[in-house]
Protein backbone atom coordinates (compact mmCIF):
# COMPACT_ATOMS: atom_id res chain seq x y z
CA UNK A 1 0.00 0.00 0.00
CA UNK A 2 1.53 3.22 -1.06
CA UNK A 3 0.01 6.64 -0.74
CA UNK A 4 0.73 7.16 -4.46
CA UNK A 5 -1.97 4.65 -5.26
CA UNK A 6 -4.48 7.46 -4.83
CA UNK A 7 -2.78 9.32 -7.65
CA UNK A 8 -4.54 6.98 -10.05
CA UNK A 9 -7.57 8.90 -11.37
CA UNK A 10 -10.03 6.06 -10.95
CA UNK A 11 -8.78 5.18 -7.51
CA UNK A 12 -8.95 8.84 -6.52
CA UNK A 13 -12.56 9.17 -7.59
CA UNK A 14 -13.52 5.83 -6.05
CA UNK A 15 -11.91 6.77 -2.74
CA UNK A 16 -13.08 10.35 -2.46
CA UNK A 17 -16.66 9.94 -3.63
CA UNK A 18 -17.93 8.27 -0.42
CA UNK A 19 -15.94 10.71 1.72
CA UNK A 20 -17.17 13.83 -0.03
CA UNK A 21 -20.71 14.06 1.49
CA UNK A 22 -19.24 13.72 4.98
CA UNK A 23 -16.71 16.48 4.33
CA UNK A 24 -19.33 18.80 2.88
CA UNK A 25 -21.83 17.94 5.62
CA UNK A 26 -19.16 18.56 8.24
CA UNK A 27 -18.38 21.89 6.61
CA UNK A 28 -22.06 22.91 6.69
CA UNK A 29 -22.45 21.95 10.34
CA UNK A 30 -19.23 23.52 11.62
CA UNK A 31 -19.73 26.70 9.59
CA UNK A 32 -23.30 27.08 10.86
CA UNK A 33 -22.25 26.50 14.47
CA UNK A 34 -19.17 28.68 14.22
CA UNK A 35 -20.80 31.62 12.48
CA UNK A 36 -23.99 31.62 14.58
CA UNK A 37 -21.91 31.31 17.75
CA UNK A 38 -19.54 34.01 16.61
CA UNK A 39 -22.19 36.45 15.36
CA UNK A 40 -24.85 36.12 18.04
CA UNK A 41 -23.35 34.62 21.16
CA UNK A 42 -20.16 36.57 21.66
CA UNK A 43 -19.96 39.97 23.33
CA UNK A 44 -19.11 43.07 21.30
CA UNK A 45 -15.53 44.19 21.48
CA UNK A 46 -15.12 47.12 23.88
CA UNK A 47 -13.17 49.03 21.25
CA UNK A 48 -14.41 47.80 17.89
CA UNK A 49 -18.05 47.14 18.73
CA UNK A 50 -19.92 44.54 16.70
CA UNK A 51 -17.77 45.17 13.59
CA UNK A 52 -15.22 42.83 15.07
CA UNK A 53 -17.47 39.92 14.19
CA UNK A 54 -16.56 40.02 10.55
CA UNK A 55 -13.37 38.47 11.80
CA UNK A 56 -15.12 35.09 11.75
CA UNK A 57 -15.18 35.28 7.96
CA UNK A 58 -12.10 37.38 7.36
CA UNK A 59 -9.49 35.36 9.21
CA UNK A 60 -10.48 31.85 8.02
CA UNK A 61 -10.81 33.04 4.41
CA UNK A 62 -7.39 34.67 4.55
CA UNK A 63 -5.87 31.51 6.01
CA UNK A 64 -7.40 29.37 3.29
CA UNK A 65 -6.27 31.78 0.57
CA UNK A 66 -2.68 31.15 1.62
CA UNK A 67 -3.09 27.46 2.44
CA UNK A 68 -4.59 26.71 -0.96
CA UNK A 69 -1.64 28.36 -2.67
CA UNK A 70 0.71 26.24 -0.53
CA UNK A 71 -1.31 23.16 -1.48
CA UNK A 72 -0.97 24.11 -5.17
CA UNK A 73 2.78 24.48 -4.66
CA UNK A 74 3.01 21.00 -3.15
CA UNK A 75 0.85 19.34 -5.81
CA UNK A 76 2.78 21.16 -8.55
CA UNK A 77 6.02 19.77 -7.13
CA UNK A 78 4.52 16.28 -7.00
CA UNK A 79 3.48 16.60 -10.64
CA UNK A 80 6.92 17.81 -11.72
CA UNK A 81 8.72 15.07 -9.80
CA UNK A 82 6.41 12.06 -9.99
CA UNK A 83 4.18 12.90 -12.99
CA UNK A 84 0.90 12.00 -11.29
CA UNK A 85 -1.89 13.56 -13.33
CA UNK A 86 -4.27 13.84 -10.38
CA UNK A 87 -1.73 16.04 -8.64
CA UNK A 88 -1.59 18.51 -11.50
CA UNK A 89 -5.36 18.51 -11.84
CA UNK A 90 -5.76 19.10 -8.10
CA UNK A 91 -3.62 22.23 -8.42
CA UNK A 92 -5.72 23.37 -11.36
CA UNK A 93 -8.92 22.63 -9.45
CA UNK A 94 -7.79 24.45 -6.31
CA UNK A 95 -6.88 27.76 -7.96
CA UNK A 96 -10.42 29.12 -8.43
CA UNK A 97 -11.24 28.23 -4.82
CA UNK A 98 -8.09 29.99 -3.68
CA UNK A 99 -8.91 33.11 -5.65
CA UNK A 100 -12.44 33.21 -4.20
CA UNK A 101 -11.01 32.89 -0.69
CA UNK A 102 -8.63 35.74 -1.49
CA UNK A 103 -11.53 37.85 -2.70
CA UNK A 104 -13.55 37.07 0.45
CA UNK A 105 -10.57 38.09 2.58
CA UNK A 106 -10.14 41.31 0.60
CA UNK A 107 -13.84 42.15 0.64
CA UNK A 108 -14.35 41.45 4.35
CA UNK A 109 -11.14 43.35 5.01
CA UNK A 110 -12.57 46.38 3.23
CA UNK A 111 -15.89 46.09 5.07
CA UNK A 112 -14.04 45.82 8.36
CA UNK A 113 -11.60 48.56 7.47
CA UNK A 114 -14.31 51.10 6.70
CA UNK A 115 -15.53 51.60 10.31
CA UNK A 116 -12.10 50.92 11.84
CA UNK A 117 -9.79 52.99 9.68
CA UNK A 118 -12.36 55.23 8.02
CA UNK A 119 -11.51 53.95 4.56
CA UNK A 120 -12.56 51.04 2.38
CA UNK A 121 -9.09 50.46 1.12
CA UNK A 122 -5.72 51.21 2.63
CA UNK A 123 -2.38 50.18 1.20
CA UNK A 124 -1.74 48.30 4.35
CA UNK A 125 0.95 45.58 3.96
CA UNK A 126 -1.37 42.70 4.78
CA UNK A 127 -4.19 43.84 2.53
CA UNK A 128 -1.69 44.65 -0.19
CA UNK A 129 -0.15 41.20 0.12
CA UNK A 130 -3.54 39.66 -0.50
CA UNK A 131 -4.07 41.89 -3.49
CA UNK A 132 -0.73 40.63 -4.84
CA UNK A 133 -1.74 37.04 -4.08
CA UNK A 134 -4.91 37.70 -6.07
CA UNK A 135 -2.78 38.76 -9.05
CA UNK A 136 -0.69 35.59 -8.76
CA UNK A 137 -3.83 33.43 -8.74
CA UNK A 138 -5.10 35.35 -11.75
CA UNK A 139 -1.89 34.76 -13.74
CA UNK A 140 -1.78 31.10 -12.78
CA UNK A 141 -5.37 30.50 -13.91
CA UNK A 142 -4.86 32.49 -17.10
CA UNK A 143 -1.87 30.34 -18.03
CA UNK A 144 -3.91 27.16 -17.52
CA UNK A 145 -6.66 28.37 -19.83
CA UNK A 146 -4.27 29.68 -22.48
CA UNK A 147 -2.49 26.38 -23.20
CA UNK A 148 -4.34 23.69 -25.12
CA UNK A 149 -2.23 20.62 -24.44
CA UNK A 150 -3.02 19.28 -20.95
CA UNK A 151 0.45 18.08 -20.03
CA UNK A 152 2.16 21.19 -21.38
CA UNK A 153 -0.24 23.35 -19.37
CA UNK A 154 0.42 21.27 -16.25
CA UNK A 155 4.19 21.58 -16.68
CA UNK A 156 4.24 25.31 -17.34
CA UNK A 157 1.77 26.22 -14.61
CA UNK A 158 3.77 24.11 -12.16
CA UNK A 159 6.95 25.97 -13.02
CA UNK A 160 5.05 29.26 -12.71
CA UNK A 161 3.69 28.16 -9.33
CA UNK A 162 7.20 27.42 -8.04
CA UNK A 163 8.66 30.69 -9.26
CA UNK A 164 5.54 32.59 -8.25
CA UNK A 165 5.71 31.24 -4.70
CA UNK A 166 9.22 32.61 -4.27
CA UNK A 167 8.17 35.99 -5.63
CA UNK A 168 4.96 36.03 -3.61
CA UNK A 169 7.02 35.53 -0.46
CA UNK A 170 9.48 38.21 -1.58
CA UNK A 171 6.60 40.58 -2.27
CA UNK A 172 5.20 39.91 1.20
CA UNK A 173 8.40 41.15 2.83
CA UNK A 174 8.99 43.89 0.28
CA UNK A 175 5.53 45.26 1.06
CA UNK A 176 6.37 45.30 4.77
CA UNK A 177 9.47 47.30 3.97
CA UNK A 178 7.44 49.70 1.86
CA UNK A 179 4.67 50.48 4.34
CA UNK A 180 4.50 49.68 8.04
CA UNK A 181 0.73 49.64 7.96
CA UNK A 182 -2.37 50.03 10.11
CA UNK A 183 -3.33 46.40 10.38
CA UNK A 184 -3.58 44.78 13.77
CA UNK A 185 -1.14 41.98 14.50
CA UNK A 186 -1.84 38.37 13.84
CA UNK A 187 -5.18 37.57 15.39
CA UNK A 188 -4.48 34.02 16.35
CA UNK A 189 -0.77 33.68 17.04
CA UNK A 190 -0.36 31.30 19.93
CA UNK A 191 2.23 33.19 21.91
CA UNK A 192 1.23 36.80 21.48
CA UNK A 193 -0.17 38.73 24.42
CA UNK A 194 -2.36 40.66 22.03
CA UNK A 195 -4.17 37.44 21.25
CA UNK A 196 -7.93 37.51 21.27
CA UNK A 197 -9.77 36.40 24.38
CA UNK A 198 -11.13 32.89 24.72
CA UNK A 199 -14.74 33.94 24.13
CA UNK A 200 -13.78 34.98 20.61
CA UNK A 201 -11.19 32.29 20.15
CA UNK A 202 -13.38 29.17 20.39
CA UNK A 203 -15.99 30.15 17.79
CA UNK A 204 -13.12 31.32 15.59
CA UNK A 205 -11.55 27.87 15.78
CA UNK A 206 -14.86 26.31 14.76
CA UNK A 207 -15.13 28.70 11.82
CA UNK A 208 -11.60 27.87 10.72
CA UNK A 209 -12.38 24.17 10.88
CA UNK A 210 -15.47 24.86 8.78
CA UNK A 211 -13.49 26.76 6.15
CA UNK A 212 -10.88 24.00 6.03
CA UNK A 213 -13.57 21.36 5.51
CA UNK A 214 -15.33 23.48 2.91
CA UNK A 215 -12.10 24.07 0.99
CA UNK A 216 -11.08 20.41 1.11
CA UNK A 217 -14.53 19.38 -0.05
CA UNK A 218 -14.55 21.89 -2.90
CA UNK A 219 -11.04 20.92 -3.98
CA UNK A 220 -12.03 17.25 -4.06
CA UNK A 221 -15.20 18.02 -5.99
CA UNK A 222 -13.42 20.19 -8.52
CA UNK A 223 -10.57 17.70 -8.89
CA UNK A 224 -13.12 14.99 -9.68
CA UNK A 225 -14.66 17.28 -12.28
CA UNK A 226 -11.26 17.97 -13.85
CA UNK A 227 -10.49 14.23 -13.93
CA UNK A 228 -13.82 13.50 -15.63
CA UNK A 229 -13.29 16.33 -18.14
CA UNK A 230 -9.85 14.99 -18.94
CA UNK A 231 -11.27 11.50 -19.31
CA UNK A 232 -13.94 12.80 -21.68
CA UNK A 233 -11.25 14.50 -23.78
CA UNK A 234 -9.13 11.35 -23.80
CA UNK A 235 -12.04 9.19 -24.91
CA UNK A 236 -13.02 11.69 -27.57
CA UNK A 237 -9.45 11.83 -28.84
CA UNK A 238 -9.33 8.05 -29.08
CA UNK A 239 -12.63 7.85 -30.90
CA UNK A 240 -11.73 10.48 -33.47
CA UNK A 241 -8.52 8.55 -34.00
Amino acid sequence: MSVWEYANPKKFIATTTPVLPWVMGGAAVTLTIGLVWGFFFTPDDYRQGSTVKIFYLHVPAAMMAINIWVMMLVTSLIWLIRRHHVSALAAKAAAPIGIVMTLIALFTGAVWGQPMWGTWWAWDPRLTSFLILFLFYLGYMALWTAIEDDDTAADLTSVLCLVGSVFALLSRYAVNFWNQGLHQGASLSLDAEENVADVFWYPALVCIAGFVLLSVGLVILRTQTEIRLRRARALQARMTG
Binding site: G139, A142, L160, F167, L170, S171, V175, W178
Partner: peptide, 17 residues
Protein backbone atom coordinates in the same frame (compact mmCIF):
# COMPACT_ATOMS: atom_id res chain seq x y z
CA UNK B 1 -0.94 40.07 -23.10
CA UNK B 2 -0.82 36.90 -21.01
CA UNK B 3 2.90 37.42 -20.50
CA UNK B 4 2.26 40.90 -19.07
CA UNK B 5 -0.22 39.37 -16.65
CA UNK B 6 2.36 36.79 -15.56
CA UNK B 7 5.40 39.04 -15.45
CA UNK B 8 4.09 42.23 -13.85
CA UNK B 9 3.27 40.68 -10.44
CA UNK B 10 6.77 39.19 -10.41
CA UNK B 11 8.15 42.72 -10.88
CA UNK B 12 6.63 43.98 -7.61
CA UNK B 13 9.60 43.40 -5.24
CA UNK B 14 12.07 44.94 -7.70
CA UNK B 15 9.81 47.94 -8.19
CA UNK B 16 9.31 48.43 -4.45
CA UNK B 17 13.00 48.37 -3.58
Amino acid sequence: LLMSLLVLPLYIPTLIF
